[in-house]
């Protein structure tokens, strides 16, 4: 569990992180979102005791980052943004080194190294010099390093950066699998990733917290929430637009490109982002129109993200 209380970081006069507070429970994956330079990595560096905060505190499984850095670091597996590793070493040797520094030895160490090689599908590269690895493999090597001690808390700075689509999928699966008995904080720029793996997401901008909630809660702030895109044939465009606009629950109607079949396509925005799909369906049936496409949106995270981070 991570508890962050009014954490701030100043570089000279520049406020990189501004009084951020949040909590991550065991079993949760918290996604950390924000534009470039928002302060995500800086916050993670403070949580891993690499940078001391200017003010504020955080506790990791009950240990304070200000007064118990070594205990905090025991709890955490950390993947830094640049996924650094010692280039002259072989993959397996590097993981063994990290395990040794963390205090493991003998068969236990070998078992742990074998396990993380398997988790990150690096078995075939185990004897390769890290310097000769491709970017994605290096990323996975550093990810493997963060898992070696089976940590209760994982802090991963852009874990899927540079991975191919298959590996992205693998790593997301891995994170999801591990999340049950762990506390996980990941930062990412890939918004689908938030919906795919995160139980909650936190958005920061210019060091300040601007949004926090489950992916669905964030999506409900979108103007596309419950908007319905539909294509119908059998009626003239003007009449349909007029009819739809006349409905009580409809906020506005937008005309989109028509379908190749000649069907008319519109997007209907409901009032207060409430669901209107059943009303619409009934209405269209009553008017005896042929529905060629009917699609309800959950909302768009990228639009919510833009609003929250550009809005102020």
């Amino acid at each position: 569990m991570i508890v962050v209380e009014a954490l701030s970081k100043q570089f000279g006069r520049f406020q990189a992180v501004d009084e951020i507070s949040f909590e991550v429970q065991r079993g949760e994956v918290l996604g950390f979102l924000g534009p470039n330079g928002a302060g995500k990595s800086t916050t993670m560096k403070m949580l891993t005791c690499y940078l001391p905060p200017t003010s504020g505190n955080a506790e990791v499984n009950g240990f304070s980052i200000n007064s118990q850095p070594l205990q905090v670091q025991e709890q955490i597996g950390y993947l830094p943004e640049s996924a650094p590793s010692y280039n002259e070493m072989q993959v397996e040797e590097f993981l063994t080194f990290i395990g040794e520094v963390r205090g493991f030895s003998g068969t236990e160490l070998r078992r742990k190294v074998g396990r993380v090689l398997e988790l990150t599908s690096l078995q075939d590269a185990r004897k390769q010099i890290i310097d000769t690895l491709s970017k994605g493999f290096r990323q996975r090597t550093c990810l493997a390093q963060s898992l070696i001690h089976d940590p209760p808390v994982l802090i991963l700075d852009e874990p899927t950066d540079g991975l191919d689509p298959n590996q992205k999928h693998e790593v997301r699966e891995l994170i999801r699998r591990m999340s049950e008995e762990r506390t996980i904080l990941i930062s990412t720029h890939i918004l689908e990733e938030v919906e795919a793996v995160c139980s909650r997401a936190l958005i920061i901008s210019e060091g300040r917290l601007v949004g926090l909630g489950t992916p669905d809660e964030l999506l409900s702030q979108s103007i596309y929430r419950n908007a319905v895109t539909l294509s119908v044939s059998g009626k003239s465009a003007e009449a349909l637009l007029e009819d739809l606009n006349g409905l009580e629950q409809v906020y506005s109607v937008e005309r989109l490109e028509d379908m190749p079949s000649g069907a008319l396509t519109v997007r209907v925005f409901p009032k207060d982002r409430e669901s209107i799909s059943s009303e619409l369906e009934q209405f269209l049936k009553k008017k005896k129109m042929v529905i060629e496409q009917f699609f309800v949106e959950r909302g768009r995270l990228d639009e919510v993200f833009r609003n929250l981070t550009l809005g102020n």
């Binding site: 690499y50 070594l70 955490i76 950390y78 650094p84």
Partner: peptide
Amino acid sequence: RSGTGELLLTLPVR
């Protein structure tokens, strides 16, 4: 330069 310092200094070692 290589960023490994961040790795080393976030391991639980003084």
